[in-house]
Computed example of a mutant assay.
Amino acid sequence: MATLASVKQAIATEMNNIVFISSETCSICHADAPRVKKLAETNTIAFHQLDIMHEPELAGFFEVLTVPAVLVFHKGKEVSRQARFIDFHSLEELLQQLPTDSKITDYQSLFSEH
């Protein structure tokens, strides 16, 4: 399990990151975490799982009101957020579209319908 400090560092330095915020008492979180982690691995994106019970301050930092929450970051900016009900199909589509190199990102094309 990651720490808030290590995730902040990763978001600042790595191209793409998925932050999965859960709670040890959340059964849906336990079911969704492996699926999100597998999507991250398939798309070669860093995956970080944080537990809101162990670090309550992360709720304020990420402005998360419910779990599970999946936040996707590209070049340090949040580009997607899903909470409680995760749409795995749209999450997978987004992850496949994220640029993996350091060239300039055209955010309009990133979110346009194909």
Rank of each mutant, 00 (worst) to 15 (best):
T100C: 04
D51A: 01
F85N: 12
C29K: 01
K103H: 10
R35F: 02
H89D: 10
K103I: 07
C26D: 12
K38R: 14
F88T: 04
K77Q: 14
P56F: 02
L91D: 02
L71G: 11
I52A: 09
S23T: 01
T42R: 07
L58N: 01
F88V: 15
D51W: 07
T25I: 00
A31E: 06
L95Y: 11
T42Q: 15
I45Y: 05
L58D: 03
F88Q: 08
T66A: 03
P34A: 13
A40Y: 08
A46L: 01
A46V: 10
D51G: 00
T66P: 00
F61W: 11
A31Q: 07
R84E: 00
R84H: 00
I45E: 08
E41C: 00
F85S: 06
L91K: 06
V72K: 00
E93L: 14
R81G: 05
E55F: 04
H89T: 09
G76V: 00
S23H: 00
I28Q: 07
P56W: 07
Q96G: 15
L50R: 05
A83L: 08
I86S: 14
I104S: 14
K75D: 05
R81M: 12
I28R: 04
G60E: 06
H89M: 15
Y107G: 11
F62T: 00
I52Q: 09
Q108Y: 12
G76C: 09
S90R: 15
E24V: 01
S90D: 04
R81L: 10
A59N: 12
P56R: 10
I104F: 10
E41Q: 15
K75H: 09
E41K: 14
E55D: 13
T42K: 14
T42C: 05
L39A: 04
T105W: 10
Q108K: 07
K38F: 07
Q97L: 14
L94V: 01
I45A: 06
V79C: 02
L98V: 09
F47T: 10
D101V: 08
Q82F: 05
A83Y: 09
R81V: 02
V70W: 02
L94R: 03
D101C: 10
V67N: 05
R81S: 08
F73W: 02
C26R: 05
E92Y: 11
G76R: 02
L50C: 11
E57M: 05
P56H: 12
Q96F: 04
K77W: 12
F62V: 07
L94F: 08
S90T: 15
K37V: 03
V70T: 14
P34T: 09
K77H: 03
F88N: 12
K38C: 08
I45F: 12
F88R: 11
A69F: 01
I104C: 05
R84G: 03
L71F: 02
S80K: 11
E93C: 02
S27E: 12
F61N: 03
F62D: 10
E41M: 12
E92Q: 15
I28N: 13
T42D: 15
